[in-house]
């Protein structure tokens, strides 16, 4: 299958509910044709609301427009938008069996039984639920339901595929497996997809771009790499992955910390807030670094050691070290980072 679908343009789409709750600040965002965009944020930040505006299940506040390609769909009801939607709790129809669920959208479109059956069979294979066609919904496991929901949404060849936390209801192992399956499926379909989640690993795996949300507004838009390595602010840095955020005086191209100094590229003198990912640090002998600290705890987590180091900065630093490294609590060690791994966060100094 080749890339299909349409670009999505949201212009000034905000949402205030009847009870006065402001779920979404006016937001503008463009999603390219064939792109997968993931909305990522904590519970209640407005992700579902955003998705429902795109779907046509909510209307944006006055002034907001939703366009699919060149077509303004703001006033088009969901049933005429041709969007596929996978609901968080799947919304499978209990009065229909698996095949009937998958074929329902096709039936609505007046597609004949033979063609419908063929398409359903195609999707059953694609989503790996062979043999379940005549099962009723309450005889399915969570993972199977998820696949049926996906097959049903995709069956109608939608212009846009919308997924609201489709994996949240599943256990961790299954979630991981389905995540990669979903990834290859989305790539194969090449359809414009909007995916909502609060799980950063899901966002990283699936998103061409990630939109990090905070309290109804966009905190940052960027590729998974941008978001991870170049967070726009402290909120994004701390929400996505583990981060050491330190606040210090910057002088002579280095941060002045309690345990020594840490060189920074492109530093301007004054108060600064900087972020270093735990895996960027290297633990070296105390004599080989300008920054030293005392090892506080060493936790073995399998593929690596998670070490906390006190006395180096204003708060303990998290450091990921190779699992063969010989460090012990109480030891004084040096810390180095490659140039560029210290990320200054703008406008965050207190």
């Amino acid at each position: 299958m080749t890339a299909h679908g349409v670009a999505i343009h949201l212009e000034n789409c905000g949402k205030t509910f009847a009870n006065g709750a402001r779920a979404l600040e006016p937001t503008t965002i463009d999603i390219a044709r064939g792109e997968t965009v993931v909305f990522l944020g904590p519970s209640g930040c407005g992700k579902t609301t955003m998705l429902r505006i795109i779907a046509g299940l909510e209307t944006p506040d006055a002034g907001g427009r939703v366009r699919f390609g060149d077509e303004d769909v703001t006033d088009t009801p969901i049933e005429r938008r041709n969007v596929g939607m996978v609901f968080q709790s799947y919304a499978l129809f209990p009065n229909m069996n698996v095949a009937e669920n998958i074929g329902y959208g096709l039936k609505i479109r007046g597609i004949g039984a033979a063609e419908r059956a063929q398409r359903v069979a195609e999707l059953v294979t694609l989503t790996g639920i062979e043999g379940l066609e005549t099962r009723s919904i309450d005889q399915l496991s969570g993972g199977q339901r998820q696949r049926v929901a996906l097959a049903r949404a995709v069956a109608i060849r939608p212009r846009v595929l919308l997924l609201d936390e489709p994996l949240t209801a599943l256990d961790a192992l299954l979630r991981e497996r389905l995540r990669s399956e979903l990834n290859s499926l989305l790539r194969a379909l090449g359809i414009t997809s909007v995916y909502v989640t609060h799980d950063q690993a899901e966002a990283m795996t699936l998103g061409d771009r990630i939109v990090v949300m905070r309290k109804g507004a966009i905190a940052q838009i960027g590729s998974p790499r941008d978001i991870y390595f170049a967070p726009a602010n402290r909120y994004v840095a701390e929400f996505v992955g583990a981060a050491n955020v330190v606040e210090a005086e910057c002088r002579d191209g280095a941060l002045i910390l309690p345990g020594g100094s840490l060189p920074v590229a492109h530093a301007t003198p004054g108060r600064a807030v900087a972020m270093v990912r735990p895996e960027s640090w290297s633990i070296v002998p105390a004599t080989a670094a300008t920054l030293t600290g005392r090892v506080e705890t060493v936790i073995f987590v399998g593929d690596r050691l998670r070490v906390t180091i006190a006395g180096a900065a204003d708060r303990p630093l998290l450091v990921d070290a190779p699992n063969g490294l010989a460090v012990a609590p109480g030891q004084t060690v040096g810390l180095t980072v490659p140039p560029g791994a210290v990320r200054l966060l703008a406008g965050e100094a207190a």
Binding site: E79, S89, G105
Partner: peptide, 20 residues
Amino acid sequence: LLDEGAASLGASPWQRFRDV
């Protein structure tokens, strides 16, 4: 939720009432 699910698949209000 079921109603929204059917709507997302293109069913009109009457079809939703009848089928779901």
